[in-house]
Amino acid sequence: MERFNALVIYEKDDGTFERKIEERQISDLPDNDVLIRVYYSSLNYKDALSATGNKGVTRNYPHTPGIDAAGVVVKSKTNDFKEGDEVIVIGYDLGMNTPGGFGEYISVPANWVVKKPESLTLKQAMIYGTAGFTAAMSVDKLQKFGLKDGGKVLVTGATGGVGSIAIAILAKEGYQVIAATGKIDQTEFLKSLGASEIVNRNDIIDEKKALLRETWDGVVDTVGGSILASAIKALKYGCSATTCGLAQSPKLDITVFPFILRGVNLLGIDSVECDIEFKKYIWNKIANDWNIDFHDDFYEEVSLEQLNEKIDLILQGKIKGRVVLKHSAP
């Protein structure tokens, strides 16, 4: 147990970055409350940013990314967890400046850790990961803000991790899901998740008008920019849009008219720093009400050696669904 494998990102003297799989020691990890043997992790866009040297995500290198981890407690300094407990860790500083799930072990504070619900496997937890957790948060918040039964909900960035899982959850809840994407060739994939209609993302963008025809009972937006602005302008009276991403742009060029003339709501979604009790609540929703049997085409399971290629592909927008990292057996 003293040594383990991890993907480590190094900053070179010329300012470029390189990735290496190398052997690390438990003593290299921070001295935190809970030591966890990681069995599964998953690849998120933020991990790819960390793996390519984005200082807005990770300040200091060498570093091991991986904002998601699911595994088994090996050592615990707290009575809240004991050896053998199956647990999930997402968010907080994991994989950003604290060594993350792309290593076979992590050491984290106890208040970052959630006991895995019994009806969820470690692998299933990482098929969801931060992306699925964010999707579940988005649906939960729309419902709390009055999303009507059977309503028409727009999901942007539909083939990505958050978008695709949001589609599946919304469809399971009985909503009419319209998937907006630039990858129209993925129509069958999106319909298999439960989307009732697929639209080209460019067809819903209107940057000129202050208001658009009332169309959506709710919106789950994952990309920001003009797509989000146009979606807000097309919300029905009193309805809401959630926002959790900025793949298109962090800017929102919009007037106040949708808010003061239609009383719509823009709801921010943050899965990183939300309260641990709320994380337990969402994980239990995922494990029970929103536990979806995803088909094999939805995710790809990879080894640590195969992860490098996937990091490049997610940055190029060429990943659909989820990439799940399976660490080798101990």
Rank of each mutant, 00 (worst) to 15 (best):
I184Q: 08
G132Q: 00
K123M: 14
G150Q: 11
K191W: 09
G146R: 07
G224I: 06
K123S: 01
T159D: 13
S230A: 12
T134W: 04
K209A: 13
A166G: 11
Q186T: 08
I232E: 12
D206N: 15
K191Q: 14
E207A: 13
Y128K: 05
A231W: 02
A229I: 00
L142M: 08
Y128W: 13
A180P: 01
I198P: 09
K141G: 05
L122N: 11
A125K: 00
L170H: 05
A195F: 03
E188M: 03
A231N: 01
L211M: 15
I227F: 05
V223L: 08
V155Q: 10
G129Y: 14
S119W: 06
V153L: 04
D206T: 08
G157W: 14
I167D: 04
G225V: 15
T159H: 12
E214G: 05
S192P: 09
S192A: 15
L212C: 00
E173G: 00
L228I: 10
S196N: 09
L228E: 10
A210M: 10
L190N: 12
D140I: 03
K141Y: 11
L142S: 09
L190T: 09
D149Q: 12
D221G: 09
K148M: 13
S138L: 03
A180N: 03
V199G: 04
T181D: 09
D185S: 12
A135Y: 11
A210W: 05
R201F: 07
E118K: 14
S230P: 07
A158E: 01
S226D: 15
T134F: 07
S119C: 11
N200S: 13
I178W: 11
G146N: 05
W216A: 04
K191S: 05
L122Y: 08
A135P: 12
G132S: 06
F133Q: 08
K144Q: 13
S226E: 15
A136D: 11
N202Q: 14
V220F: 07
S192M: 02
A195N: 04
I232T: 07
Q176Y: 14
T130N: 09
K183N: 14
G163L: 06
T134Y: 06
T181L: 10
G182V: 07
L120M: 15
V199D: 14
D140H: 14
L211Y: 01
A195G: 13
R213C: 09
K172C: 06
I169Y: 14
A131H: 09
D140T: 13
L142H: 03
D203M: 07
K123P: 11
I205Y: 09
L147R: 06
G151H: 15
A195W: 11
Q176I: 06
I169C: 02
K183I: 07
L193V: 02
M126Y: 09
A166S: 15
K148H: 11
F189C: 13
S226I: 06
V219S: 02
N200V: 04
K141C: 04
I184K: 13
K148Y: 07
A166L: 14
E173W: 01
K148R: 10
I169W: 03
I204C: 05
M126A: 01
V153I: 14
R213Y: 12
K152G: 01
G225C: 04
W216F: 10
F133R: 10
K116L: 15
S192R: 12
A231G: 08
K183H: 15
V153Q: 02
M126S: 02
A179D: 13
T215D: 03
K152E: 13
I178D: 03
A136Q: 05
A179V: 03
